[in-house]
């Protein structure tokens, strides 16, 4: 989790020489610089994409800037017209309910009750694909989809970047 390291370095004043960055920031930067070449033309069926803003990356991590980068990358990879945003979104998005150790804590009914709001929010945009750039979000949103009867694919972002890669 981005925040675990970011805030850990900060709160405990841990000395370090490296610069701490998110892969999402880099994807966006590399696409803008033309180093990562992607083409959305594979998405002929018009698969409809939406996204989960991981709390530890967006609200508690980098903020709206990385939420914008995330959307920029998805649009570049899947086609601008094939992205539909949830409401609320970015720093104001709801947690999926899998974070904070909820997937490990064993209170399964509570975790799914928490996630009901996320499920309804996602259902409202009728997605084919929900991008979850965090493993906790991925596991939870996939479980919510199965449990409450959604029909979307829950996936990481990297699979679609590779699908859209232009070989030079």
């Amino acid at each position: 989790m981005y925040y675990a390291t970011l805030e850990g370095l900060r709160r405990f004043k841990i000395p370090h020489k490296f610069r701490f960055v998110s892969i999402i920031t880099l994807y966006a930067q590399w696409i803008r610089e033309g180093r990562l070449k992607v083409d959305p033309s594979w998405n002929k069926e018009g698969l409809r994409f939406t996204v989960q803003d991981p709390c530890k990356l967006v609200r508690q991590g980098i903020g709206d800037e990385v939420a914008e980068d995330l959307r920029f990358v998805i649009k570049a990879v899947a086609g601008e017209e094939n992205f539909v945003d949830v409401w609320p979104n970015r720093s104001n998005n709801y947690c999926c309910g899998g974070g904070g150790g909820a997937l490990q804590s064993g209170f399964v009914d509570n975790r799914r009750k928490y996630g009901e709001l996320k499920f309804k929010q996602l259902m409202a945009v009728e997605p084919d694909v929900v991008i979850t750039p965090c493993h906790n979000c991925h596991t939870q949103i996939k479980d919510l989809c199965d449990h409450y009867g959604g029909r979307w694919q829950t996936t990481h972002l990297w699979n679609w970047i590779v699908k859209a890669l232009v070989n030079s």
Partner: peptide, 28 residues
């Protein structure tokens, strides 16, 4: 337990610095 959190991040930071890299990429 803050001491456990600190311990794990400190281990990470030491390891990454020992490699002499410029950037630490977090994948999520």
């Amino acid at each position: 337990d803050p001491e456990d959190w600190e311990f794990t991040v400190r281990k990470q930071a030491e390891t990454v610095d020992a490699l002499g890299v410029r950037y630490y990429i977090n994948t999520e």
